[in-house]
Amino acid sequence: MGTAVSAEPERARAEDFERTIAADERIEPRDWMPDAYRATLIRQIAQHAHSEIIGMQPEANWITRAPSLRRKAILIAKVQDEAGHGLYLYGAAETLGASRAELLGKLHTGRHKYSSIFNYPTLTWADVGAIGWLVDGAAITNQVPLCRCSYGPYARAMVRICKEESFHQRQGYELLHALARGTGAQRAMAQDAVDRWWWPSLMMFGPPDDASPRTAQSMAWKIKRHTNDELRQRFVDICVPQAEALGLTLPDRDLRWNEERGHWDFGAVDWDEFRAVLAGEGPCNEQRLDQRRRAHEEGAWVREAAAAYAAKHPAGAAR
């Protein structure tokens, strides 16, 4: 039966692809797809996967110093989830013909990027709360529409991820809430963390729409469902009342309700800072990549031992 398909002319397959997208159905791994669609997805999914695993570092920094056993167990579970998210996403990228080893290689050699947010340091315990609330919160705002992405394996991975992310956000919010009701010093620590993480979190949605040339094509392919600015606005609208409930302020003098728009107006994001951090000039870029490479190299003996064991016991190995 396969011969009938391979004889089908390219144009008919392209039309089939367009029809599937238009009907809001999902593209599956072995469907024909335009090369640019495949390349766009591999780049986006890989960058997303890299962000999940690099994102383990700033929080793992606090595991040994968590203030209680409860907080420590929560933080370990969260960091472990992020490793899982990375694996779901590398798996989704592999269905497009990429190999995980190759994608990791590109991360390690700096040819692939990850989210700029993880190049900021976690200076205090309150940063763990601010990351959960704001960074995971921004990630959720970005990721919920991706559950309806036109590429099936990516959409399915996002469904799993979004389910897990909601605990991440809530534990961060709870942590900040506890600090905000604590001593003056704890309160100040919580406010300082929010002050430092707020703007980098807004940058997580990517450059403004007029400087985001790929958005139109990604939306036509239904990989993206909303523009960067739409999602950023949604996030700001969600966060303002949440900050109020914490009794903390957001570090933006221009933040005010706009009755006409039905949205919160907010100040200008420092896009020069965003570009600088992406270009490698953030406070922790070098440290993050060094740590990632070291973890990979130091794990080599485990991978080699497991492979040697599998070779000795072929009954348990994949044929």
Partner: peptide, 17 residues
């Protein structure tokens, strides 16, 4: 299941199959 051990129906999910 080893992924290599899976036999799939066809390369196209909308096949005449």
């Amino acid at each position: 299941v080893p992924a290599a051990a899976v036999t799939a129906s066809s390369p196209d999910e909308r096949d005449p199959f």
